[in-house]
Write a protein that binds this DNA or RNA. Sequence first.
DNA 1: TTACCTCTGTACCGAACAGTACAGAAGTTC
DNA 2: GAACTTCTGTACTGTTCGGTACAGAGGTAA
Lengths: 205, 205
Amino acid sequence: MPGPGRPREFDRTSALDAAVRVFWRQGYEGTSLRDLTAAMGIGRPSLYAAFGGKEQLFRAVVARYRETEMAYVRAALDRPTAHEVAEALLHGQLDALRRPGLPAGCLSVQGAAAVSAGNAGVAEFLAAGRLAGEAALAERFARAVDEGDLPPGTDPAALARFLQVVLEGQAVHAAAGVGSADLARSAELALRAVPAGGRRRRAPR
Amino acid sequence: MPGPGRPREFDRTSALDAAVRVFWRQGYEGTSLRDLTAAMGIGRPSLYAAFGGKEQLFRAVVARYRETEMAYVRAALDRPTAHEVAEALLHGQLDALRRPGLPAGCLSVQGAAAVSAGNAGVAEFLAAGRLAGEAALAERFARAVDEGDLPPGTDPAALARFLQVVLEGQAVHAAAGVGSADLARSAELALRAVPAGGRRRRAPR
DNA sequence: TTACCTCTGTACCGAACAGTACAGAAGTTC
DNA sequence: GAACTTCTGTACTGTTCGGTACAGAGGTAA
């Protein structure tokens, strides 16, 4: 139901999805407003009216990316055991990387890896998001220790950090052009660091 | 021994080292010629005369970075066992990340993670370098299998990829501000994936 | 129809970008 | 000394950057 005034001629979400792909492929600083308006099919003033500017658009893009491309993360945390959580994360990422027609790698990792001084805030924003994901994972693993699902003595924070490091490394590797099949074999090695099934394995020391 | 003509007023290697730090912190596209000339203490024409331009300077910077900041890699490959190779790589990286006054993370990982279309070649150049490192590591692990140092049936390529993924992930994590002490605990978990000491462990499946 | 409101396209802003022409300075060789 | 060669600083090139002023188009509400 449009209010008064001329109605917007584009769909905000479709335009946002187009911006996701551009920022994903080219990073924050590698993307110009010309790239964005061309991909989104809108004029520059429309972009400013709808999203506020380049940086605000980027933040909206990251939020959208997390909702769509990283939906597997939320689902993974709900798995019943720590090992299944880790498995769902690693496999979910591999599935996400396998999708055709999308840029390689991960927007959150490569979107603002290193930036000029003026855009340091953007890099910090992405880094904080990744560390928040790690913290959520650590909390989940701490619960697993409480539940006896992970062996007592397990350091949940260290395990979460290890897993997050692997996920980030896989993203870097995927961006370099390595395919999901090859990444799956290294993911399998990583998965062994997470004790499986009740108390049948020894605790990591 | 200077030849004819006015002698250069700056030291090429010192200027290169200054450029390393700038590119390391801000990435390829995040670094402007103004940033470079200011840090290097030279004028723009001097930069062009000595290095050829921004991209050529960046390639020289990466070569210099590999020689200095990544010297531990070459040394690690000479260790007698696969486990020691992996340990030397992980610890060498941690030591490198611990050095004060230098930018966080790794130039090779974050220097051109995502770039505009016009600079795609720079990103490919860095990615190829990382994959070459992984290939060298795979070769080293294949030798370890031959020597009986790694259990028969071990996939050296997969193990090398895993380790490289972890190293890249640690670099991303370090760039986010995570300290070496915290990274060391995840490195320890990664190290367990590399069988140690003769045939005392089972082969990874 | 009239009044009002919001979006769209053009055209522009100052600033920064990578790269270079050119004149003069500072050395060497003869 | 003169001739030659190379480097340095200033000033400039055209282009692109993110962001915006403004006029007109396209709607709603009375």
